[in-house]
Simulated scan of single mutants.
Amino acid sequence: MKKLFIGLLAAFIFVVVNPTKSEAKVMYDGAEVVKGQTGKMTFKKDIKVYKRNPDGSFDSLVVKRNNFFKTYDIEKYDGKIFYQMRQYRVQATDLVVFKEVPIKIRSSFYNNPTYIYFNRDGITNNYGSYFREQDQWYISFSDTNNGQKLNYCAADNDGTYDPCIYYLGTDLKIAETISRESNVRYELTKDAGGKSTPLNGAKTETMYAKGNTFSSHGTEINGYLEVLSESDPKSYTWLPVDLLKPVK
């Protein structure tokens, strides 16, 4: 019994001296923020929202007035805005109250973030453009009356022009930049389209048939790997990582 008591005492002291490490929660506007979240919504009255199933049918859910819901992806096109509540998609109307999580907070969840522009209403037609801090470019954040902006600025500025490009936080998707070994050879396991930017909705530039081989450039973003086609080595393209297998 004495040995058992001594053992339990030692275990208790170890736990107190070496507590289990836990990550602090990220809080904003009185609520916890999670990775991938763009904001939160409330509704001015009870409304019904819908999700589309793979078979084309729809499921509905009644959301209650004044309840908070986390929002994730945002779509902007044809003058309309849609918010994604996990599987459910909600169009912005007078009944929807959306509050943005500042992009500076959103980016804090990532070690090496890449920012992808996904507003298809943009007058510059740069849907899918992506950027990160590198070489002579740096990133900062600023608050405006219309939400927080990201400033993408060139460092080599002589003071005669504005060196920055400005983006609204709600126009940007954030993805982790993952370094992979370069010059690794891969084979395509299924026909797929190569894209100029690592984004599902981006335009396909070149179709590649199953069995084509590629060489990795060493960067993975948003589920896409930057590769060079061995049959047409003119420029790099982005292909889905899950459709590429290493070859000897």
Score class of each variant (00 low, 15 high):
Lys104Pro: 00
Gly39Asp: 00
Leu168Arg: 01
Arg106His: 02
Glu75Asp: 10
Phe141Gly: 01
Ile13Gly: 01
Val34Asp: 05
His217Cys: 15
Lys64Asn: 11
Gln37Cys: 04
Asp135His: 09
Ala92Cys: 03
Asn111Pro: 03
Ile74Pro: 07
Val17Cys: 04
Asn212Leu: 12
Phe58Arg: 05
Lys21Tyr: 14
Ser22Leu: 14
Asn145Tyr: 02
Ser182Ala: 15
Val17Tyr: 02
Ser215Val: 15
Asn151Asp: 03
Val227Trp: 13
Ala202Val: 10
Lys76His: 01
Asn146Trp: 01
Ser182Trp: 01
His217Gln: 10
Asn18Cys: 14
Thr219Ile: 15
Lys64Pro: 02
Lys76Leu: 02
Asp232Trp: 15
Phe118Ile: 13
Ala202Ser: 13
Val247Asp: 12
Val26Ile: 11
Glu23Gly: 12
Gly39Cys: 07
Thr237Ser: 11
Lys104Thr: 03
Asp94Lys: 12
Tyr117His: 12
Ile139Lys: 03
Met207Cys: 06
Asp242Cys: 13
Asn222His: 10
Ala31Ser: 08
Leu172Trp: 02
Asn183Ile: 04
Asn18Lys: 07
Ser142Asp: 06
Asn157Ser: 11
Asn183Ser: 12
Lys40Asn: 09
Asp156Gly: 03
Ala209Val: 11
Tyr28Ile: 02
Met207Asn: 10
Phe98Trp: 13
Val62Pro: 00
Gly128Glu: 05
Lys64Tyr: 15
Lys149His: 03
Thr197Glu: 15
Thr213Gln: 14
Arg120Lys: 13
Ile221Gly: 13
Gln84Pro: 00
Ala10Ile: 08
Gln37Pro: 06
Asn18His: 07
Ser196Val: 13
Gly194Trp: 05
Met1Phe: 10
Asp242Ile: 10
Asp135Tyr: 15
Gln37Tyr: 04
Asn212Ile: 06
Glu176Asp: 09
Asp55Leu: 07
